[in-house]
Design a protein around this nucleic acid. Sequence first.
DNA 1: CTGAAAGCGCTTACAG
DNA 2: CTGAAAGCGCTTACAG
Lengths: 343, 343
Amino acid sequence: MNTVTMQDVANLAGVSNKTVSRVINNEPSVSPATRDKINKIIKETNFQPNKSAQSLAAHRSLLLGLLYDNPSSAYITGLQEGVLKACDNFGYGLVIHPCDHKDSDLLQNLRQLIGSTRMDGLVLTPPLTENKALLDFLDENNKPHVLISPLDQVQSNPLVFTDDVSAAKQVMQFLFDHGHKRIGFIQGVRQRSGTEMRYQGYKQALEDNGIVFDKDLVAPGDFTFESGELAAQQLLRLDKPPSAIFASNDYMAAGVLKAASQLRIPVPYELSVCGFDDNPVARFLTPTLTTVQHPVTMLAESAGELLIRQLKKHLEPPHKASDIHSELIVRESTGPVNSQFEA
Amino acid sequence: MNTVTMQDVANLAGVSNKTVSRVINNEPSVSPATRDKINKIIKETNFQPNKSAQSLAAHRSLLLGLLYDNPSSAYITGLQEGVLKACDNFGYGLVIHPCDHKDSDLLQNLRQLIGSTRMDGLVLTPPLTENKALLDFLDENNKPHVLISPLDQVQSNPLVFTDDVSAAKQVMQFLFDHGHKRIGFIQGVRQRSGTEMRYQGYKQALEDNGIVFDKDLVAPGDFTFESGELAAQQLLRLDKPPSAIFASNDYMAAGVLKAASQLRIPVPYELSVCGFDDNPVARFLTPTLTTVQHPVTMLAESAGELLIRQLKKHLEPPHKASDIHSELIVRESTGPVNSQFEA
DNA sequence: CTGAAAGCGCTTACAG
DNA sequence: CTGAAAGCGCTTACAG
C-alpha cells in the first residue's frame, strides 16, 4: 500500500529527514519556502508517517484510552464518536476498554492494558470517575486522564462536566408550568454524583416553587428498567398518588410506562412521565418519553481535546474544566394535569 | 511504568534477545529449560513487549480494523465486544471505524485510515459487506478481511454468517403454532441480504404450512421505527387485517406497537407482534417484544479469530466460513389468536 | 537449539 | 534555519 517513507520525501525535496520531521510535527523554524515544497511532496506522494516508528522513537504511543462501564450502548457509541473526533483531529489513535468497575481485578487488568498499549492518556466516565483507587493508580503511574462526569464538588482532576442539578430543575419547571404539584421522583444508584445531583435538582425546584417536600413521593431505583417499574408501582399505589413521575434515567422511565400500563393509568392523561438522558429508547416507546438530552458526544470530544492538549507541551495549557449544557426534550408522555387531549 | 525491555530479560536469563523473541512469539526450537527460565523472568519482571517496536521491525501493525455503519448502538457494542475478545486472545489491538456507506468519500477515507494505522486486516459488517467497490479496494491493496453477514449466496470472501431464512421460519412456526393464519410481514431495506432472507423465510414458512401467499399482507419498510409505524397502519387497515405482524427488525416492530396503540388494537389480545434482532428496546417496550436473538458478539468473536488465523501463517489455515445460530425469544407481545389472557 | 549483525522509520540531542 | 549521528526495542535473514 503506502510505502513512502520520510527519507523518500526528504530525498525528493533535497533536504534532510530531520527537516521533513519538523514539517510533519508543525515545529517552527522551517523556512516557508522549504515548508511549502515539502508539503507539496507529501501530498503528491501521499506520504503518511509510520506511527510505530514515531511511537518507538518518541517514547509515546500516540494512543488515547477510553474506559467505560455503562449499560447503555447508546451512551458508549456516543462517547466513542466524540473521542474519535478529537483523536482524528490530532493524529491520535483510540483504544477502547469496556470494563467492570466492580471487578476486583480491575486495576490488574488496567495495568496490563496500559503496559501493553503504552497509551499516553485516558478518558474516564462514571462510575469509573468515582473510583479513588483507579484515579490514584493513574496518578502514581503518571498517566494523564480527563474525567467526564456530573460536577458535584471541587475536583482535583481535569474534568468535562454537565450540570445535572439545573437539568433536573428544568424538567421540574416544565412540570410545574403544566400544573403538576404532586411530582414523584425515582432515584438512581446511590452515591453516584449524577444520582445525587438530579435529586438535588428535584428538591431545589420544589423549594423554589414553594412546594413542601414529601418523602413518600421519592422512591429508590438503580437505573434499571425493573427498578423503575417497581418504584412506579409503589408511587402509584399511594393514597394520594403523584400526577407526574420524574425518573432519574430513561430506562427507569420506561419501567414507569410499563407499570402505568399494568395499572391501567393512561399516560399522559392521568400521569405525566419524564426521564433523563434521551436514550434512543425514549423515541421508541409508546407514548414517546419527555427527557433531558445528555450531550455525551460533545462532552467526549471536549474531553479528548483537553487530554491531548495536556499531552502536547507546545499547545496552550489545559482548561481546568468545561461545562456543556443539557437540553430538555418534550415528547408525548407529558401533558397538563388532567389533560383532555384527543385520543 | 513498565520499562523492562527484551534485552533486560535476555541479560537476566543469560541468553541473546533473539531467544527471548522466540519464546514471546511461541516459536519452536527453544529448549524447554531455556523456555521455562525465560518465562519465569518475564513473569517476575512483568515484561511486556513494546508493540511499536514489534510493528516496526515486523512490518505489521498487530492491529485489526472494525468497520461498521449501523444505526443500532447495541449492535455496535456487541460487535466490538466480540472482536475485542478475539484481539485480546491473540495480542492484537483494535481500531474501530464508524463510517457512512453512502458517503462518496468512503474509499478515500478508508485509504487514509489504512495508510495511517497500517491495520493488518479488517472485519466488515452489513451494509459494507455488500459494497463491491470497497471489497475490491481491499483486495487490490492486499488487506485480508472477514465479513459478518447473512449468507444468501456463495461468497468469495471468508465469512461468518447467520441463517436468517431459518430464523425467520422459526418465528413463523411459532405464530402458526398459536393459531395465526393471516400473518403480516414488514420488509427491510431492499437489496440487503438480511432483508431478502427474512422475506424468503416468511414465504417458505407459508408454503410449508399450506397457506397461500397474499401480497397484501406484505408492507415495505426501511428498518426505521417510523417505517414500521406506517407499514402497520397500512396492514391494520386492510379489510381483512392480519392477526399477527412479523417485522424484519425490532425498531419497526416498536413502530407496529405504536400504530396498534393509536388504532386502539390491544397487543397481544387482538394482534401479536414479532421483531428480529433482540435489540434492548425489545425488553423496554410495553408489552415486551417477541424477537430473534442475533448472536452478534459470538459472530464478531469468530470473525476476529478467523481473520487472525489468516494473518498468522503458523496457525492452521482459515475455515472458509462458520454458521452461528439465532434463537427465538418469546415475550409478551405474542399470544394465541384471540387470546383471553387475564389483564 | 542458539546468537551476532543489520535494519525497520522515525525522533532526540546536539552542532552549526 | 538546517543536518549528521545515534538510538528507540524489536524482528529478519543468516550462520553455526
